[in-house]
C-alpha cells in the first residue's frame, strides 16, 4: 500500500506547488511596499500587474519584459531600432539587466502618473534627453534627436533650418552660455514651456483599475 502512495508523491507535489497559497505571482511579492513608494494605490499596483503580465507574455512568457515586448506593447508592430525607445527602456531598466521586472515597470510608470511630482517628470525627461548620460544635454545630442524625429515622421528640413531651431533652443535654454544644457537650465526651460513635458503624463494611469478590472480576482488586499 505504501509503495502505491510513493508513486503518487510527484503528482501531489506538483498539485501542491500549483495551489501553493503563498506562491506570490512573480514581481508582485509586495504590492503594499510598491504602493508606499510610488503614487499608485495597492489596487492600482495590482491592476498595473495585469498590464505587465499581458506585455511580458507577448513574445516569451517569462514574467519579464524584454525590449522586443516593450516595443511591441507601444507600437503593436516590431519597429526597427529606435533611439527613443532604447532611451526610455534604459530608464525603465534601473537594474541595467536588459530586461524589466514588474517593480522596475511600476516605479518608472509612476513618474508618468498625473499625480506624480513635476520634479520627477523633469528629472526623467532630462535623463531621457541626456543621451550620453554626462549630466548635461549637448548641442550634438539635441541635433541627433531632432534628426531622428524628422526621419521617423518622414519630415524633411534643411540642415540650415535644423541648425536655426537648435540655435534658438540654446539661446533660450543655455542661460549659462557654456554650450550645454544642465539640469537647472532644463528645469527653467520646462517651467517656462510646460508643453515640453506633455509626454511625461499618461491620463490612462488614472483609471488603470477600470481598464484592467481583472486584478480583483487576484487581489491580495482590501484596498479601500
Amino acid at each position: 500500500m505504501l509503495q502505491c502512495l510513493e508513486g503518487f508523491k510527484p503528482l501531489f507535489a506538483s498539485i501542491l506547488r500549483c495551489c501553493d497559497l503563498n506562491n506570490q505571482p512573480r514581481g508582485l511579492e509586495d504590492p503594499e511596499l510598491l504602493a508606499r513608494e510610488t503614487v499608485f494605490s495597492v489596487s492600482e499596483i495590482e491592476a498595473l500587474y495585469e498590464l505587465f503580465k499581458r506585455i511580458s507574455s507577448a513574445v516569451i512568457d517569462d514574467g519579464l519584459i524584454n525590449k522586443e515586448e516593450f516595443q511591441l506593447a507601444l507600437f503593436k508592430i516590431n519597429k526597427k531600432e529606435s533611439l527613443f525607445v532604447d532611451r526610455v527602456f534604459d530608464l525603465f531598466d534601473t537594474k541595467h539587466s536588459g530586461i524589466l521586472g514588474f517593480e522596475e515597470f511600476a516605479r518608472a510608470l509612476s513618474v508618468f502618473h498625473p499625480n506624480a511630482l513635476v520634479d520627477d517628470k523633469i528629472e526623467f525627461s532630462f535623463q531621457l534627453y541626456d543621451l550620453k548620460q554626462q549630466g548635461f544635454i549637448e548641442r550634438q545630442e539635441v541635433k541627433q534627436m531632432v534628426v531622428t524625429t524628422l526621419a521617423e515622421s518622414g519630415m524633411n528640413l534643411s540642415d540650415d533650418v535644423i541648425e536655426n531651431i537648435i540655435n534658438k533652443t540654446f539661446e533660450q535654454a543655455d542661460t549659462k552660455h557654456d554650450g550645454k544644457i544642465d539640469k537647472e537650465e532644463w528645469k527653467n526651460l520646462v517651467l517656462r514651456h510646460p508643453s515640453l513635458l506633455k509626454n511625461m503624463t499618461l491620463q490612462y494611469l488614472k483609471d488603470i483599475t477600470t481598464t484592467f478590472p481583472s486584478f480583483v480576482f487576484h487581489s491580495q488586499v482590501d484596498d479601500t
Binding site: L51, I55, A73, L74, F75, K76, K79, S82, L83, F84, V85, V88, L109, F112, L128, Y129, V142, K143, M145, V146, T148, T149, L150, E152, S153, I165, I166, K168, T169, Q172, A173, L189, H193, S195, L196, K198, N199, L202, Y204, T211
Partner: peptide, 30 residues
Amino acid sequence: QRNSGPPILINAFQLIGMSSCLDLSGFFEK
C-alpha cells in the same frame, strides 16, 4: 497684415516631443 506662415516652433524639444516613440500611451491601447 495676417500672419499666415506655419507655426514657428519655439524650440527643438517641442519638435522632439512630437516623436511617437516618446508617447507611452500605446501600453494601454489594445
